[in-house]
Amino acid sequence: MRDGSEAETADSRLAARLASLRAEHGWSLDELSGLTGLSRSTLSRVERGELSPTAASLGRLCTAYGRTMSRLLTEIESEPPRRVPAGSQQVWYDASVGFTRRSVSPPHPGLRGEVVECTLDPGATISCENPPVPGVEQHVWVREGVAGITVDGSTHTLGPGDCLRFRLDGPSRFHCPGPERTRYVLMIVMP
């Protein structure tokens, strides 16, 4: 995990990137609020770096901007390297949900795929109303624990070693029923 100063720097870069994306799209805070369902004041505080976004709110923003979360988080880093040493893999934690996300192989210009390692604490749920990019291909490989994954209205229960693969065109939900945490690898392939 990052120390406090590194986290503050990443948070301030994320805030600046979110503000620049809104400006690039020519949207007011009210327009972005209408697209994401997030309040105008929350969006303003996030863009000023006064509030760190939750996984759910960041997911809504990614959907509005047509980006995966990994791609957005990579955009706040300098040019991504070809080799990604374990110690430099970006880790993001949402304490409000109990969700940890490590960008093992971040998005890179000219490449369509990325690899993310995720951990859900017992009882944790991550839901997305819409895919950040319609038709994005995902492969979920459970490494520890049990995951309940809902895609296209169907729920799949996966245990260690199980893999679920799909194209994401609608809402999705990842849930850790417990009693142990769930650790899974998510492979994302852009359309």
Rank of each mutant, 00 (worst) to 15 (best):
E144K: 13
P134D: 04
R143K: 15
P134E: 05
L158N: 03
G145S: 07
A147M: 09
T125G: 02
R102W: 05
V140G: 03
D121I: 03
R102A: 11
V133G: 01
G159H: 07
P122I: 04
I126A: 11
P160D: 04
R101E: 14
D152G: 09
E144T: 12
G135F: 09
T150S: 03
N130Y: 11
E117C: 03
V140Q: 05
P107T: 11
C128S: 15
P131K: 02
V115F: 04
R143W: 08
R143I: 15
V115D: 02
T125D: 05
G110M: 10
P109T: 06
R101V: 14
I126T: 07
H156L: 01
V146Q: 12
E144F: 11
L120W: 06
S105C: 08
C118Y: 00
D152H: 11
N130T: 02
C163F: 00
L158Q: 05
P107I: 07
G123M: 09
L120T: 04
N130L: 11
H108M: 15
S103R: 07
V116E: 10
V136W: 06
P107R: 11
E129K: 08
P160M: 06
H139S: 15
T125S: 14
P109V: 05
G113C: 08
E129I: 05
V151C: 06
R101F: 12
N130R: 11
G113I: 00
V116P: 01
D121N: 11
P122G: 10
L111I: 07
E137N: 13
E117L: 11
P131F: 02
E114G: 13
G148Y: 02
T157H: 12
V115H: 00
G135I: 07
R143H: 14
H156K: 03
E129P: 01
W141P: 00
S127N: 08
A124M: 07
H139K: 14
T157F: 07
G148T: 04
G123T: 06
W141G: 03
C128I: 14
S127Y: 11
C118Q: 10
V133L: 06
V104N: 06
